[in-house]
Structure formats: structure tokens, C-alpha cells
């Protein structure tokens, strides 16, 4: 009991001494002449969420780039029957150049927030990440063909590796006029973001232009 009463009295004494010290440490009253600090209220940041629609438009640079042709080699057979009945059925090859244009493309590989449609100018990722395009190409083939061919067509691009940036393939069909209307089919494989590729165009029912191998060079 004595110990408890001793502890209680010591506690009370300590409390009184701390209270006195607190009273002594109180700051002096501030004079009313000191100005209030100026506070600038900044507007709240924009927290809305939007997307920039990256739909490229034709430019002069783009137009000049379209003039770069894709070289190609056409292989076919044109049988010749001579006046004495001798037959020459050897296969022939001819060099050519091809220019390509995409009037409209629908991409199913771009992010859903982006527009899926492209007109004339097509960013490589939109084309090679998976797309369907209406294509048009103009080509000149020399040698035994010696003709300018215009090919409207339809082509699908499918990504194979890294959403088509490393490797993509295509399947397509086109029509062209050469002694009547002809049909051709093409397959292709593309690397380096679609800028370089190999396209093989086959016309099963047109012997003089049976196969065309094109080194496709294309950017946008």
C-alpha cells in the first residue's frame, strides 16, 4: 500500500511539473498586422481519357515514295508454230516493274480504340497486323509481254510473328486485261515491318504470264 501511494504521488507531481512547462512554452500572440499568405488555387488536372486517331493523310513525301517500283520477273510459255509446222514451246522470262496503291483497307489488327479504315496511306502496322484491302497495281512487263497491266484486286494480310512486324503473309486475287480479262492469284511473305517482301502471282489459265515473282518494296 505504501508503495502504491508513493507511485501515485510521484505521478501527480510529474504531471503538475509538465503542465507548468507547457504553459511556459506557449508562443506570444501574433500581431494582427502580419498579412495572410497568398494561396494560388490551381485547376484540377484533366482526368478524362481519350485517344488520338492516327489516320495518316497523303503528303508529297508519301506520293514520291509511291513512285519507287517493285522489281519483278515474269515467267511464261508462249508456243509458236512455224510455217513448216515446227513448234517452239520454250519458257520465257521477262523483267518488269510494279507500282501499288491501296484505295481502301480495313484492319482487324489495330487496337479497338483506333479507326480500322485507311484510305490510300496505310501505316505498316495497320496493314500487316491483319487487314483486308482493295488493291490496285500498275505494272510494265517487257520482253515477250511488252505490256502495261492494270490489276484491281483484293488481298488479305495475316500476321505471323510479333503482330506482323517480324513476319506476315498475304493471300490475294486480281484481274487484268490481256487479250481478254484474266484472273490471277497471289501469295506473299513480308519482313521488316512489311517494308520488304516477296510476292508470287500465278495465273493458271494464262500461259504467257503463268508466274510473276515480285520483290515488293513498300512503306506506307
Amino acid at each position: 500500500m505504501k508503495l502504491r501511494s508513493l507511485i501515485a504521488s510521484l505521478s501527480a507531481a510529474a504531471a503538475v511539473s509538465f503542465a507548468g512547462a507547457a504553459v511556459a512554452a506557449e508562443p506570444p500572440e501574433v500581431s494582427s498586422s502580419v498579412p495572410e499568405p497568398v494561396v494560388h488555387h490551381a485547376p484540377q488536372p484533366d482526368t478524362s481519357f481519350g485517344y488520338h486517331q492516327a489516320v495518316p493523310r497523303p503528303t508529297l513525301t508519301w506520293a514520291l515514295l509511291q513512285l519507287v517500283p517493285s522489281p519483278e520477273v515474269a515467267v511464261g510459255r508462249q508456243r509458236h508454230i512455224g510455217p513448216t509446222g515446227n513448234i517452239d514451246a520454250s519458257a520465257r522470262a521477262a523483267f518488269g516493274l510494279r507500282w501499288q496503291l491501296t484505295p481502301v483497307l480495313w484492319s482487324f489488327g489495330v487496337h479497338p480504340s483506333q479507326s480500322r479504315w485507311r484510305y490510300l496511306v496505310v501505316d505498316p502496322i495497320a496493314r500487316h497486323s491483319g487487314s483486308l484491302e482493295l488493291s490496285a497495281s500498275v505494272e510494265y512487263i517487257g520482253g515477250h509481254i511488252d505490256s502495261v497491266l492494270v490489276r484491281p484486286g483484293l488481298r488479305a494480310y495475316l500476321p505471323v510473328a510479333h503482330r506482323g512486324e517480324y513476319l506476315s503473309v498475304s493471300l490475294g486475287t486480281s484481274v487484268y486485261a490481256y487479250d481478254g480479262l484474266r484472273v490471277a492469284y497471289d501469295v506473299g511473305a513480308y519482313i521488316l515491318g512489311g517494308t520488304v517482301g516477296v510476292q508470287m502471282t500465278v495465273a493458271p489459265t494464262h500461259a504467257p504470264l503463268a508466274a510473276i515473282a515480285t520483290l515488293r518494296l513498300r512503306y506506307f
Partner: peptide, 12 residues
């Protein structure tokens, strides 16, 4: 009747 698509012939 000896000609097919793309064939050429010289008749004498």
C-alpha cells in the same frame, strides 16, 4: 484447230 491461249502461229 491447233492453237491454245497465248500461242502464235505463222501460216504459209
Amino acid at each position: 484447230a491447233d492453237l491454245e491461249d497465248g500461242d502464235t502461229k505463222t501460216v504459209r
